[in-house]
Amino acid sequence: MKSPRPYSPRSGAAAQSLTERRKAATQLDIARAACELFAEHGPDGTTAEDIAHRAGVALRTFYRYFRNKQDAVAPLLAGGGEQWRALLAEEEPGTPLAEALERAVTRSLSGQVAVAEGLNWTRGLLRASAGDPALRAVWYRVNQESEEELVPVVARLAGPSADPLQVRLLCAAATDAIRISLEVWSGTDADPTGPDSPAELAVRSLRELTSGMTILSRP
């Protein structure tokens, strides 16, 4: 398991160079193209060449960034996790953790960008992954990486006296609450907002999974 990157207030888009931003934009264009094609034709009916053509890049550019066609969707799936960690990082140390987590989860899953684009991309990909183990593996890998990168953010909010085991357990529970909620929602026709939306399901799941955790009851 790789070591999580240390939390830094300069992490994220603001700290990226122009070259890094261009690279990230190209990867996201490829990811969107892959998602569209998977939704239209399924993973089996889509090739790396198809994705490169839809994204307007050379096939060698595709393989410069991704090992295979399923791996191409990772930047799109990872975007939601990056957004919610950034929102959680905005919370002040000393804020009750349960309150901070629920607020960040709700904001990330009900924000304008998430509702307009991100959630529908995720729904399409999760439905496409039902018959494609390699695509499911990308989904699980993205969630594992998100959990690891969440650790320093939660540790900062919890304070130096927090039990590292409790911090890790809370990060795992929070990540799984979002993952499971998105999987359940993707299997329905529920709207991205309102009852049974990802935000509503995630808060319910978070409360169920973290009920009784001592780290949340610390003063």
Rank of each mutant, 00 (worst) to 15 (best):
R218D: 01
A48M: 10
G159P: 02
S108G: 05
A33Y: 07
T214E: 05
Y140F: 13
A33E: 03
E200D: 09
N143H: 15
R179K: 14
A24W: 03
Q70I: 09
G187I: 05
Y7P: 05
E147M: 11
G131V: 13
I180D: 14
A199T: 05
Q83P: 04
E147C: 07
G80L: 05
T210E: 03
S8R: 10
A202G: 07
L37R: 07
A24V: 03
A72N: 11
L97D: 00
S197K: 03
R67N: 15
C171W: 01
T214G: 08
E147S: 07
A177W: 02
V184S: 12
G118A: 02
S108I: 05
G80R: 01
I178S: 09
R64I: 07
D163H: 02
P195D: 10
L135H: 14
I30R: 02
Q112I: 08
V105T: 12
D132N: 13
I215G: 00
E200V: 06
A78L: 04
F38P: 00
A155I: 01
A190H: 11
P9Q: 05
E20T: 06
C35V: 08
A34P: 08
E145T: 09
R179H: 14
A162H: 00
P9S: 09
S186M: 06
G131I: 07
E82G: 11
A78S: 08
S8F: 07
P75C: 01
D71N: 15
F66S: 11
L109I: 03
V203H: 07
S129F: 12
R64E: 15
L216R: 00
P9D: 08
E145P: 02
A155C: 12
P96V: 00
G111L: 07
A72T: 08
T95D: 00
E49T: 14
A155L: 06
E92D: 06
G80S: 06
E92V: 03
L201D: 03
N120D: 14
D71L: 10
L150S: 08
G194K: 05
T61W: 11
G212P: 00
A15M: 11
A173G: 06
L165R: 01
K23W: 05
Y7E: 02
S11M: 11
L157N: 00
G187W: 01
A78P: 01
W185P: 00
R22I: 07
I30K: 05
Q166E: 03
A86W: 06
T214V: 11
V57F: 11
Y63K: 12
S17P: 10
A89P: 04
L109D: 01
A98Y: 03
L209D: 05
Y140A: 14
V203Y: 07
L201F: 07
G42A: 03
T106I: 06
